[in-house]
Design a binder for these strands. Structure first.
Lengths: 184, 184
DNA sequence: GTATGCATGTAATACGTTACATGATTGT
DNA sequence: ACAATCATGTAACGTATTACATGCATAC
């Protein structure tokens, strides 16, 4: 009921603010100038989202740490905000997540490493790999059954999808190895 | 103003209806049971979307081609609907499309093959490959500059993103080859 | 002292989501 | 006759999008 679905921007804001205090403008710049460009940098999305988080007590204004005389409103996480972030990070990975919001899972991966530590990140990757492998298998069996009746472009598009998930699965495995090396 | 952004569901409905008359329920089943599961199969999204398309004159009721005594409302594209579909398919591929809606581009690819023919599809793939390569290069140079200051998980996540785009670029090239073989 | 960019905000609109509602038709 | 499933719809809610608005610092 309402309190809904993914709300990826909300989580991204919490995750970034967990790294340290930032202003809305800082966040907009980060969305605009880094590979986080999946997020809109328009003020109409970010400022209202920050106000909502503030109203819910998940973030508060931080001491204005002004690096200039400019008006500037920094925010930082509250304990409640950190709890919500961690709850998001710890959500079990579902088949639906893999299908409909792989982007969000990758975001969760990045923040998990920074917020919950290496051990938990490796669990995350194992779960992710399992779900991805399962879905790849599903797609392959669909492909086998349906390919004969599909158009060439349909088949090629499906193949691209399968390849993408397979690549992510392989990536998860390799990342797991890298974390292991870094941990020891 | 308003008439906005991607509206991927709208385009998907037009594309599917271009293949032949279907009912809302058919479309829901297709979303639920095929790899098109990026789309929600909930009635609250599909039926309103169909009503909007009908009100705009892009689709009309088709003769009820009933395969049972059940109530059933089939829709088919109007000439205006086909025009809008083709306009969507012919939109130039932007950097933003690649970053924020690769899914939509893959959908466009599939329908382009079915609606506009092989020649146009190959143009599409060339454009797509160019945009993907350009963005991969961008990401690589960001990676080179920023990697030293990033956390391990941040770096791994970024690497996954780069790999994904690189894979799509390679796919576009291979698909181009397959279409060429099929065309001759 | 005027333009440019910093920094935050708001209004209109459309859309997806969840949940609920409603008949009609098969199957048993 | 009754349950399950077919098939379509509606209502409340939250949120992204686009475009516009505002005020204050710097820079020149």
């Amino acid at each position: 009921m309402g309190r809904a679905s993914s709300n990826m921007l909300r989580s991204a804001l919490l995750g970034l603010l967990a790294q340290g205090p930032r202003s809305g403008y800082d966040l907009r710049k980060q969305f605009a100038e880094t590979p986080m460009q999946v997020f809109s940098d328009s003020p109409g999305s970010i400022y209202p989202a920050l106000q909502r988080l503030r109203r819910e007590g998940l973030i508060v204004e931080a001491s204005p740490r002004r690096r200039s005389g400019r008006r500037r409103q920094d925010f930082k996480l509250t304990p409640a905000g950190l709890r919500e972030l961690e709850a998001w990070l710890r959500r079990p990975i579902t088949r639906q997540d893999v299908i409909r919001s792989l982007d969000e899972l990758m975001l969760r991966f990045a923040f998990t490493g920074e917020v919950l530590g290496v051990a938990r990140t490796r669990e995350f990757l194992r779960e992710l790999h399992a779900q991805l492998s399962a879905y790849v298998a599903e797609l392959e069996s669909f492909h086998e059954a349906a390919a004969p009746h599909m158009s060439l472009s349909g088949r090629l598009a499906l193949q691209s999808g399968i390849d993408g998930f397979r690549l992510h699965a392989r990536w998860a495995k390799e990342a797991l190895g890298e974390l292991q090396r870094a941990q020891t």
